[in-house]
């Protein structure tokens, strides 16, 4: 993930935003940490007695596998759906707000965008 160091002139980076910037730059580390925590949670299934409503809930790893598989399935199906229903932004013309550029940005009179960078 690219990271072009921003110029935050007005109040400078706080420790908190610096920490977040570090996470953004080192996103791979963050993902690995997440995977480690998730793996530990999976193994957590051995450590307690599960009380589910249904028998299948008590299978080892039911919830983790369910979460992962359903997430991927939802996203892949949604991608397919997009192929069917995607239209240009001005499809409904001026009878909808879809194509409007949005409302004027308000900075209380003080402009501090450093501009540009539209996707």
């Amino acid at each position: 993930m690219t990271h072009n160091h921003p110029s935050t002139e007005q109040d400078g980076d706080t420790t908190f935003t610096r920490l977040l910037s570090w996470c953004v730059v080192n996103s791979k580390t963050v993902v690995i940490a997440l995977a480690a925590v998730s793996g530990a949670l999976l193994l957590g299934d051995f450590l307690y007695e599960k009380h589910g409503h249904f028998a299948f809930e008590e299978w080892f790893g039911f919830y983790p596998v369910f979460g992962f598989v359903v997430y991927v399935t939802v996203v892949m199906l949604a991608k397919k759906l997009r192929g069917l229903i995607k239209r240009p932004e001005d499809y409904y013309g001026d009878t909808s707000v879809d194509a409007e550029d949005g409302l004027p940005a308000t900075d209380d009179g003080k402009q501090n965008h450093d501009g540009g960078g539209h996707a």
Binding site: A35, V70, K79
Partner: peptide, 24 residues
């Protein structure tokens, strides 16, 4: 525990899809 499991593994799935460029 089960709630954390389902949510974190879904989050992990997002990371995998996003980093592999599959995410729309």
């Amino acid at each position: 525990v089960t709630q954390f499991q389902v949510l974190l593994f879904a989050l992990l799935a997002f990371c995998v899809l996003y980093r592999s460029g599959v995410y729309p």
